[in-house]
Each structure stands twice: as structure tokens, then as C-alpha cells.
Amino acid sequence: MRVIEAGKVTEEVRRLCIEANYFLGEDMEKALREAADTEESPVGKDILGQIIENARIAREEQCPICQDTGTAVVFVELGQEVHITGGDFVTAINEGVRQGYKDGYLRKSMCHPFARKNTGDNTPAVIYTDIVPGDRLKLTVVAKGGGSENMSAVKMLTPAAGKKGVKDFVVKTVVEAGPNPCPPVVVGVGVGGTFEKTALLAKKALLREVGVHSPDPELAQMEAEVLEEINKSGVGPQGLGGRVTAMWVAIEMIPCHIASFPAAVNINCHVARHKEVVI
């Protein structure tokens, strides 16, 4: 049994919240540079240049890339040989979010759904825990923006819809979102499982490095086809017209019930932020 202090969890979550919001991942920076090279619209090219410049300013001046510093979504892979001590695990994560959003001058965006009263510290975090073999603890913090989250969708397709049904659903969802989710976007797709599991798969798909296809050749091909189809739409950077509406599509799939065919699309904006640590 390996012992990890709850205080260590808080400290790491605090750091990951700040770093995710200040430092755009290298995969995203590369994807944005490629998009700027590919884009044919002069306005779109100029916008991509501004987005790249914005990421540089945020990194150098250590300030949020976007003012929407997101819901803190925390993915946990907890080794079954790990014993968390000195406090409860969920409280430790939320304390890390509280400290990170305060100390990092990040916006507090969580509120009561009806009264719309802000909780004041960006808690509660949305936490997903998987128990895995081993004695390590992996924490991934996603700062998920609201604009792109609002354009996401789950659909209970029928088995007869097949691959084409999923592709059409994904393309339609992204194209109809138009300028709202801050294109060029990154698209996470979940296929299979149940109503809620397919949505979770779509969110997990957003954690995959941009530019890396699924190891399943069938899904890899589908990712490429969906991306091509989305980019025929003409939506372009910020929806002002252009070739690059999405920079990447990642699909995750698991088996489902013989009666069911659930699929989900989780859209991420061009500020696709996540940072992880293994303790």
C-alpha cells in the first residue's frame, strides 16, 4: 500500500488548474499553426494569427488564455494500491480548485442553476474516478469552457443508423453550432455504452493528443472522414467563413446494448485546455 497525502492532491490540482489556463498545450499550438497555413480566407488567417499571438501573451505574462477559465473537470485514475490519507479525497480536489482559481486570478464561473448565484470559488469540480491497477495516482484537470459545452449533444440513435448515422449526427452538430463554440474547434465523439457513458466517452476523447488518431483503424478512418466533412461546411475560424472549422476529431467507442446505439459529441473551443500529473 502506497500512502498519498490529501494535501498533495490539493497542491497538484491547484497547480494544474493554473497551468491549464495559462499554458496552451504544444499539440494545440501546432494544430493552430497548421490551421493558419491551411486557411484560405484572409480574415480566417488573420484570426488564427491573433489566436496564436494570444496564446503567446498568456504564456509569457502568465494570465488566462481565455476569460472563461471553465468548469474544472477532474479525471482521476486511482491505483488500487494507493491509500489517500489526511483528509477526504473529493474535498482535497475541490480545495485545489478553490486555491487554484483564487491564486491564479481565474474566473469563478460556477453558479446555482435556478438562482444563478455564483458559488464564488469555482467549486464544485466535476470529478470522475477510475480505480486502476498499480500504486500511482493520475490527475487530469480540464478547464472546460461554457460556450463550446453548450453546443454539445447526445443522441440515442437506432442500430439501423449505422456508421453513417453517427457521422451525420457529428457533422450536423458541429456545423449547426456555427460561430458559437469558438471555431476552429476540437471534436470529441463517444459511441456506444449507455446514455451517460457515451457522453463521458466524448469528453474523454477530448483528452487525446490533437493529431493522434484512434488505434482502431476503422475509427481512425472515420475521424478523418468526419473532419473532412466538417471542414467542407465553410464555417471557418470564428464562423466568419473559411476552410478550418475543426482542427481534430477523436472518437472513442465501447460496446452497447443490442437495442441501443448511443452517440455523443463534445465540442471544445480552440482553447482546448487540460494538464495532467502522475503522482
Partner: peptide
């Protein structure tokens, strides 16, 4: 429209800010 997500860049053109109403609403 301003460029969504270009928030650090846009902030450079804001020279002063003061709250004039509804301070209780935070951001």
C-alpha cells in the same frame, strides 16, 4: 464580433475598468 478566446490579446486594448452596477454579480 470580437475574436472569441483571444482574451489576453483583447485585454491589451482595455485601459481602465470600473464596476458601475451589480457588483454582487462578480464577473
Amino acid at each position: 464580433a470580437a475574436v472569441g478566446g483571444a482574451a489576453a490579446l483583447i485585454a491589451k486594448s482595455i485601459k481602465a475598468a470600473k464596476i458601475v452596477a451589480y457588483e454582487d454579480l462578480g464577473p
